[in-house]
């Protein structure tokens, strides 16, 4: 007789025995040491740990920006390690949203143009993407600022543009590397409110690499990484 299993939430990210070794001159730096992790669709997870613990490397490996030295990384069931450069670019463009610590907007493009960049890369017709982006910028509280360039926006506003850019193409997962590190409390809270709302309403999956207690306080799962391994994996009750 078959054993009855409880339905498990669909894993969006599956990491098995991943190592990442960098060479620095004559030395080898082991950034990840056989790390295992699964992220389910709709999670709001913070990866924390001291500097040099491997948080950013883990995010880069999940984001198809970096290749593991060994082990397996699957995103929506597709193995990233085997993909060609072109496939990895397409994966980043279509299935992954990035939010960086220092916003990383293109300075010569307006808020609207920055936000629609990924949609343009996907070949979405101009009128369609423009309508979609205007709606999205309104949703993140930047209505009326669509034509402003990054140097005409505050840090908080720039990070909301970066966030809008990250979610514009409806990615499978949003990877945010220290997204609140350069924001004051008010702007950090506003951004996190926004992320929480979209996670709740749209089931968008968020994965943060962070030191920031403000982020960790909101996370429903905290994965602590130390020395390139998962040291602690804590699920927290939904508030």
């Amino acid at each position: 007789m078959e054993k009855q299993q409880t339905p498990q939430p669909e894993s969006i990210v599956e990491i098995e025995a991943v190592t990442r070794v960098y060479r620095q001159g004559a030395h080898e730096v082991h950034a990840l040491r056989g790390l295992n992790l699964q992220i389910a669709r709709g999670e709001f997870t913070a990866i924390c740990g001291p500097s040099g613990s491997g948080k950013t490397t883990l995010l880069n490996v999940i984001g198809a920006l970096d290749r593991p030295s060994s082990g397996s990384v699957r995103l929506e069931g597709r193995e990233l390690g085997n993909m060609s450069q072109r496939e990895r670019s397409a994966m980043r463009r279509d299935r992954i949203g990035f939010v960086f610590q220092s916003y990383n907007l293109v300075p010569v493009l307006s808020a609207c143009e920055n936000t629609e960049m990924v949609l343009a890369l996907q070949g979405v017709p101009r009128a369609e993407r423009r309508a979609q982006v205007l709606r999205l910028l309104g949703e993140v509280g930047l209505g009326g600022m669509e034509q402003r360039r990054p140097d005409e926006l505050s840090g908080g506003q720039q990070q909301r543009v970066a966030f809008a850019r990250a979610i514009a193409a409806q990615p499978a997962v949003v990877l945010a590397d220290e997204p609140t590190a350069n924001l004051d409390s008010e702007n950090a809270a506003r951004l996190l409110d926004l992320m929480e709302r979209l996670n709740r309403e749209r089931g968008l999956t968020f994965l943060f690499a962070t030191h920031d207690p403000r982020v960790m306080a909101r996370a429903r799962r905290i994965v602590r990484v130390e020395d390139g391994r998962v040291a602690q994996d804590e699920l927290r009750p939904v508030a």
Binding site: A90, R92, V106, L121
Partner: peptide
């Protein structure tokens, strides 16, 4: 260089 890295991270290929 940083900005070009971001473009590549967002999915702009070498050709782009």
């Amino acid at each position: 260089i940083r900005e070009l890295g971001v473009l590549k991270a967002l999915g702009v290929g070498p050709g782009g």
